[in-house]
Design a binder for these strands. Sequence first.
DNA 1: ATATGTTGTGAGACCGGTCTCTTTATATCA
DNA 2: TGATATAAAGAGACCGGTCTCACAACATAT
Lengths: 356, 356
Amino acid sequence: MEDSAHPKRSVTVADVAKAAKVSKATAARVLGGYGVVSAKITDQVMAAAAALEYRPNELARSMSTGRSGIIGVVVGDIENAFFSLAVRGISDAARLAGFNVIIANSGEELDAEKSAVDLLIGKRVDGLIVTPARCDSIDHLQHVRRAGVPLVLFDRAIPELDVDAVTGDDRDAAITATRYLTGQGHRRLAYVSAMDAEDDGLTDIARISNSAVRERVEGFVSVLTEAGLPNPLHYVRLGATNQQQTDGVIKRLLSDSAAPTALLASDSLVGLRIFKSLQSLGLSIPKDVSMISFLDADWTSVTVPPITIVDQRVYEMGKLAGERLIARIERTPLAVERLRVSTSLVVRGSVATIGR
Amino acid sequence: MEDSAHPKRSVTVADVAKAAKVSKATAARVLGGYGVVSAKITDQVMAAAAALEYRPNELARSMSTGRSGIIGVVVGDIENAFFSLAVRGISDAARLAGFNVIIANSGEELDAEKSAVDLLIGKRVDGLIVTPARCDSIDHLQHVRRAGVPLVLFDRAIPELDVDAVTGDDRDAAITATRYLTGQGHRRLAYVSAMDAEDDGLTDIARISNSAVRERVEGFVSVLTEAGLPNPLHYVRLGATNQQQTDGVIKRLLSDSAAPTALLASDSLVGLRIFKSLQSLGLSIPKDVSMISFLDADWTSVTVPPITIVDQRVYEMGKLAGERLIARIERTPLAVERLRVSTSLVVRGSVATIGR
DNA sequence: ATATGTTGTGAGACCGGTCTCTTTATATCA
DNA sequence: TGATATAAAGAGACCGGTCTCACAACATAT
């Protein structure tokens, strides 16, 4: 009874060749499925391969062909439904084209992102999809391009980087959602995001290093400004990174003398935290506070009331990013562009009509 | 202005060696961080490497060392919160030990699982964590062992396969949950799973090819039998694979002359579907029907009422599986065993007390 | 002074595939 | 029948690292 104690040198083409009494080159042709070999020899080799349980060493194969058949994906946090859906879309696109996917988590931290990118390049991935944690640090991404590895940005664009990006139409989405809220009579609206920040507040939109969030905030602010509502920036709050932080943010927001009547959650995690905060404060939605969340997450449809959301079609975004990357890998001639996946507002029950 | 049109042969140790005017072997020693090299030469080589922007080719490195630094994970469905949490646990354990993770989706299909396993073996992963779709087809897994690649099963055990497994204490969990329901006065209980099946019903527990589900059903049935309740198998229903199927399953269950008063959902996806089914049937939880779901998914805590669940501690399961696999990879001498992560019942509001 | 040990460097085999180039066997044609 | 085209198989270089071994230079022991 032999066991797996020893790494046991695996069966190689040479072994198969010897067993089939042909040259290594011939066996390789059969096993690699290239070149031309007679039917008789093919059978011989296949039989020998089956008998020896030959499995090709993809590593070696990659090394000589220069292609690994792998695309690397660096995301902020796989646990986030946004990213797991996106990864699903990417994987589906990849599988269809015969590629596999390595996923790396950056935890939205620049250093982790850099080392993940370096590692994947080292593994000689055929292409890379990255959700850049910050849009103001681009050396490592520029290096990817210099290394000749196709790159597609996901969810966030970096105009200075001459590279494809697949994002939502964040600005428009925020505008639509905000207009809907003002249309329902809301005059004091807050935007809450999980972005790291020293304090809740925000002084300068341009300093938001995540383009998706920045554009949403821009959209949000533009609608409020256009509607003549005062001091929109005052109601943009960051730092809702966990339940406790969120509880604090919400409590501060609502204890304001001019407390907002509606909240816009930057993603479904923040949305869920806000929902729980409101619940623990004993506030009812939408009677006491209205809310809209980004992303059609599971939980949003089973709450009471169900949550009005911005459907980001993340799966499509992922799929599109995957397809785009594969087109690049296959050298399809295409202009560098930013692909925007359009979102839609799904009205459910979490927004009250007020005023009049 | 050069661009990334050409794969541009990457910088190799030989290039660095030439630039540093030393032999390839010496440059390799410096860059690979092994052997012994004088400080002066080390500096020369490092300078040359920096100037040329050398990045090691991990593929080549893996090929000569025989280690890839990658562990492969084959899961049923990444989109399922159960697996994404588990993957997070595995990834964390892996990162801590300096490994990376490749994830492959089997879609709970045997063929996809087989080819994923083959592919990962081909990529020469250092170890493999697999959630076997079926416990009665084990050739491909046996082959993994014969190939000398450490293997850890996740969520489901296969006793015939002499290999480590990390699972929940599914039997006990089901027993606890079922006892809780009978303790609340329920006499007719149903167990609903997403397992594929020709018809809803179940004739023979032993034929359930997923050990986690089988053990839960065994626990479920044992409690009912012990309590002297008639025909427990009648209330075990499979095939709740999507919303429509689940609607059918629930409708049939509840239109039974002796309809169950409580439902046990095999996982959080099934739980969510059941919740939606009941909602669409206009039934109220727990007044009309009680339910318990496996897995502490996001949605279970924000419904009205919040759902009583079996907390599976999936992150810990994943982490444990990762750690175990890494111990195997590093040849730590350990007996093959099945590690059970204990679960706990989290009582919330979805179970009514009836009778008396 | 010669033998022995140590340290740093170079030469080249090796991992397991792919792929080009060459050689051999068979088919086609004048 | 001999010349030439063509198909099939073999030999061996190559990818970019690691790593063993040989060897040189210098230090220490005898």
